[in-house]
Nucleic acid binder design. Structure first.
Length: 595
DNA sequence: CATTCAAGCGGT
DNA sequence: ACCGCTTGA
């Protein structure tokens, strides 16, 4: 599979929080509304505004009172408060409703935010091709072409109709894939509406950046196709800040350094110039991006990597006594605890690391972590309080805390799976399709360095079949979960000689980095005996929250044998079909080696 | 006094 | 591990 022959969609719920509230109170459908949190101060801050209200100039971030001035009929929904703190569970639950539909219909779905999902439709489109459907304009009632900006419905239909006939008759521009992708997305959007009640918009393109960009071209309740031939003329009018990842300081840097306003203006700069100013990696990314090439994979991930609760205490509301801090530690701990318990029941996993974030009056932000040994509100609260107290300059006997605190957050992460009974074969069998690991790359500039390969494995007695058929190897870390879910993308490397790339990463690079990382951890100042457990395989003392990775290390070691066998296959054939999986070990290792 | 809360990623 | 940046409702 060529990386720029993918079909990627980005689905984005329209003013999601408002729709969630309107689903509960349908009498507000069609009326200008918004959702705000903390209504006592100037009507709270608006975090979602529907399209009816946007017509009046109401915007996200505005105060509720200000919105009322612009639009007297504006209705404000308020975020639920628990213990005096905004609670977003209602929207998380609604999000789960949407993702249930997506996951039931597609294999490769990435939860990008509470209301956004990337879908890799490449395989779905290939399967659909075999059906040789004759699609008509009626299959695309909400579809727009990125290059067609008309507001007149008849014109949309005329131009889209011509385009769809063209690419069904002669697909020389390779647009037929995108057409089929758009067809699938028309259907899933209908399904989402039918099964959840929510409207959404979508973008369909060859990569995530383009899908994300064009999703915003026609909103709400519409979808947009971005073809490769749209790139130049649209990028010529696309402000740098509109590109995902360039909305902040990085984008400002681009504008300043290159004196450009629109992303397309960067085309006149060489790869070298971009890399000199932006760094090797970012420069490479930009150079490819403005030529329509962007290879970031859609990760198969539906679960949160962390669960957190935080609250600001601005101005006079700051926390200046131990009592106040203790109370809020407890409230935040309770929120995290409740969500962790739900997560544990649903996802059979446990968070192993608690991270406390606080901002002091000195304007410094502090982040400190400690292990989670059991889920308990009091444990979370006490751990948090203990960490915060380290920054109190006042006497231990006083209730006064200096410097005052303006923000506290508690985050739980480093999840460890409990599941330990599934066989490897079971896990692998979830993915049944092939992957082609050799990718044609005429257009792709890749700046990743070659990694040295080592051949230092002795035991070569485990065949791939042996490993795959071992039924009872316990799965404790999340290595296999990632593997099973095809979380990663095959690595591409440019070979300057013949302009072909091979998937050629080595497991050894993962090892070397992991090992050095371990050494650092073993001499870290946080070393407290309680936090260590002894690994049953290597008898090393390992920090409890590093066990998932440590277990990955062992599994990776065991599978290195398989890796070596695979490498020889890759080198000797153009494509490789792997039994019962569409992932190579490379793909996993690539991610790991970045840690 | 004041967007706020939340999540992920990359650099070091 | 910790910090800053980015994004989104």
């Amino acid at each position: 599979m060529n990386i720029d022959h993918r079909v990627i969609a980005l689905i984005d719920m329209d003013c999601f929080y408002v729709q969630v509230e309107q689903r509960l109170q349908p009498e507000f459908l069609g009326k200008p509304c918004g959702v705000s949190q903390y209504y006592t101060w100037k009507g709270g801050g608006l975090i979602a505004v529907n399209y009816e209200a946007r017509d009046f100039g109401v915007k996200r971030g505005m105060r509720g009172e200000q919105a009322k001035e612009l639009c007297p009929d504006f209705h404000i929904f308020h975020v639920q408060e628990v213990n005096g703190k905004a609670n977003l569970n209602r929207y998380r639950d609604a999000s789960a409703d949407v993702f249930r539909v997506l996951n039931a219909n597609f294999k490769l779905v990435e939860k990008a935010s509470i209301d956004e999902a990337y879908i890799d439709l490449t395989e779905d489109v290939q399967k659909l091709k075999d059906k040789k459907l004759q699609l008509t304009i009626n299959d695309f009632s909400t579809t727009h072409l990125a290059g067609c900006t008309t507001k007149i419905e008849d014109e949309r239909i005329e131009i889209l109709n011509k385009w769809l006939n063209d690419c069904q008759l002669d697909d020389e521009k390779r647009n037929y894939d995108l057409l089929l992708g758009a067809y699938l997305i028309e259907q899933i959007r209908k399904k989402i509406k039918d099964q959840t009640g929510f409207f959404c918009s979508a973008g369909i393109a060859r990569n995530k950046i383009l899908a994300k960009l064009c999703c915003g071209f026609n909103k709400p309740k519409k979808q947009t196709i971005f073809t490769q031939s749209d790139i130049d003329h649209i990028f010529d009018k696309t402000p740098v800040q509109k590109i995902q990842g360039l909305g902040g300081k990085a984008g400002e840097r681009v504008v300043e350094l290159f004196q450009v306003e629109y992303i397309g203006q960067l085309r006149k700069y060489s790869l070298d110039m971009l890399q000199t100013s932006m760094g090797e990696k970012d420069g490479c990314w930009l150079f490819n991006l403005i030529r329509g090439i962007e290879t970031t994979p859609v990760n198969n991930r539906n679960l949160y990597k962390s669960i957190s609760a935080s609250k600001n205490f601005p101005g006079k509301t700051c926390l200046d006594t131990i009592d106040k801090i203790r109370t809020w530690c407890h409230h935040l701990a309770e929120d995290v605890f409740n969500r962790l318990e739900k997560d544990r029941a649903e996802n059979k996993r446990r968070a192993k690391l608690l991270t406390v974030i606080c901002t002091l009056a000195t304007n410094e932000t502090i982040t400190r972590s400690c292990p989670i040994n059991e889920y308990s509100i009091d444990r979370f609260a006490n751990d948090t309080l203990r960490i915060l107290k380290q920054y109190n300059k006042n006497s231990l006997t006083s209730n006064i805390f200096t410097p005052v605190i303006h923000h506290i957050g508690i985050s739980a992460g480093k999840f460890l799976d409990n599941i330990n009974t599934k066989s490897i074969a079971d896990l692998f069998s979830k993915q049944t399709t092939k992957i082609e690991t050799i990718i044609s790359t005429e257009n792709i500039i890749n700046c990743q360095e070659e990694e040295e390969e080592e051949d230092d494995n002795e035991e070569d007695n485990n065949t791939e079949e042996n490993i795959l058929e071992k039924p009872t190897l316990p799965i404790q870390g999340d290595f296999f979960r990632k593997f099973q879910k095809s979380d990663e993308q095959t690595k591409i490397q440019l070979k300057s000689e013949n302009k072909t790339t091979t998937s050629s990463s080595s497991i050894t690079s993962f090892f070397s980095r992991y090992t050095s990382n371990e050494n650092i951890l073993n001499c870290s100042p946080n070393k407290i005996d309680d936090h260590y457990i002894t690994c049953s395989k290597c008898h090393k003392s390992i920090l409890i929250w590093n066990m998932p990775e440590h277990e990955d290390f062992h599994y990776a070691h065991e599978l290195q044998i398989e890796e070596n066998k695979t490498n020889s296959i890759i080198k000797s054939s153009k494509t490789i079909k792997r039994k019962n999986t569409n992932q190579t070990l490379d793909s996993f290792i690539n991610k790991k080696s970045k840690i």
